[in-house]
Amino acid sequence: MTTRTLPISKRGFNFETFMWAFTRFTAIAMYGFVLAGMIGGLIASAQTGADLGEVFYWAFFPNMAGNPLGQIWMTILAKLMVIAFVLTACGHGVHGALEIWDDYFASEGARRWARNFVIIYAFVASLIAIYVIWTA
């Protein structure tokens, strides 16, 4: 089977291309964060003697688990990384959710409401996540 493909250099730069690139690169960024988080978790658990599961539990629920990293500088880096991951996931998810909803909401009004809802949701959710993670 032959496939038709257009080189990246010939795709032009419009809104669709921008959103396509944004979605792809945020996905790549999330893989990077996951990899860095796992390596960081392994290093931190080895240095502190903490169980790896405990480190990950703290990383996911910083306000509910005891901080196994103590006062070491990694704490700030870990918080910044989790915040960056959440913001990247939000950006990726907003576009993904809109793409799915656009297929099922037929009217212009419904699409506008869905668009407003998901953007406001992502904005509020990001603010809450940043606050909780940073103040934990």
Binding site: F60, F61, N63, M64, A89, G93, G96, A97, I100, A125, I128, A129, V132, I133
Partner: peptide, 25 residues
Amino acid sequence: RIGGSALFVFFTVYLLGLLGVESMH
């Protein structure tokens, strides 16, 4: 698409869990 929707639900549950909603936790 189903996976993306599942992650959207997971993110909401996770966020509510972070906020201290015990049922979500």
